[in-house]
């Protein structure tokens, strides 16, 4: 079996080392933090002051610049959590478990943000804060899945067991992601279909969607920053008995 090809890239196995992950995340953090700050501040100013208002909704459409990035990110974060959970299950990689655990609270807060901004927009536009249509309901289920994962992590004392069971829960909940995405196409919903698709031109002029794109990338950078900070914290806590962590603490 010695000639068996190793088909995973080297960094994948290096990620398995908490120490290596801790250091690489420390190096990546400042770059992402600067990008996030620049993009979010620039994007917000652009979106609120320079983007034109909508012909129909006036200025209230500007909530799209928070709503859409947070809704996209809440789903991406869930996928990351499920994939990290699966890697933790299959390769028994501790760092993957820590990433999955760190995803949950961040994803939950972003999902709350998406639901709240949607409700605030829905009242003036639709005439209702909340409607039980397929898009809104599946998004609410996503929030409950996040809360379930958080609850499992805090309910089970043993870290390995907690990681396993929450990974299984996040994998089961993964089925919800395509449902959220396609709910507006499969069923009659009050929520409008996607303005952006990969195959067609956006149903929005460039002076409106460019700041939106800036905000989306900014949200992703901010997510990367908070995820890496949480994960580093988690690494330090779980590896608190390792010699390199002790050395690190003594240096400070």
């Amino acid at each position: 079996m010695s000639e068996k090809k190793n088909w995973m890239p080297r960094w994948f196995y290096q990620l398995a080392s908490p120490r290596w992950s801790y250091n690489i995340m420390g190096k990546l953090l400042p770059g992402f933090a600067i990008c996030a700050a620049l993009l979010l501040i620039g994007g917000t100013i652009w979106a609120l002051m320079f983007a034109p208002e909508d012909y129909q909704q006036g200025n209230s459409f500007r909530i799209i610049y928070i709503h859409v990035p947070s809704a996209i990110l809440a789903q991406s974060c869930y996928m990351l959590m499920a994939v990290a959970g699966a890697i933790g299950l299959i390769w028994k990689m501790k760092v993957a478990d820590m990433v999955a655990k760190s995803c949950a609270p961040i994803g939950a807060s972003i999902a709350v943000l998406a639901l709240a901004t949607g409700a605030i927009w829905g009242k003036p536009t639709w005439g209702s804060w909340w409607v039980w249509d397929a898009r809104l309901t599946s998004m609410l289920i996503l929030l409950f899945l996040y809360l379930g994962v958080i609850a499992l992590h805090s309910a089970i004392e043993n870290e390995a067991t907690a990681a396993q069971s929450s990974a299984v829960l996040s994998l089961v909940g993964l089925v919800n992601i395509p449902i959220i995405k396609y709910s507006v196409e499969w069923w009659n919903t009050l929520h409008q279909p996607a303005t952006f698709t990969l195959t067609e031109r956006p149903a929005m002029p460039a002076e409106m969607w460019v700041p939106l794109l800036v905000m989306v990338i900014g949200f992703y950078c901010m997510f990367a920053v908070s995820l890496m900070m949480r994960t580093r914290n988690e690494i330090l806590y779980r590896e608190r008995r390792a010699s390199w962590v002790r050395e690190l603490l003594e240096k400070q």
Partner: peptide, 18 residues
């Protein structure tokens, strides 16, 4: 007993709409 507006996916500035 209740009427809700269904917004579509099109967004545009007033001048473009005109």
């Amino acid at each position: 007993s209740e009427v809700l507006a269904k917004h579509d996916e099109n967004y545009m500035p007033p001048e473009v709409a005109e």
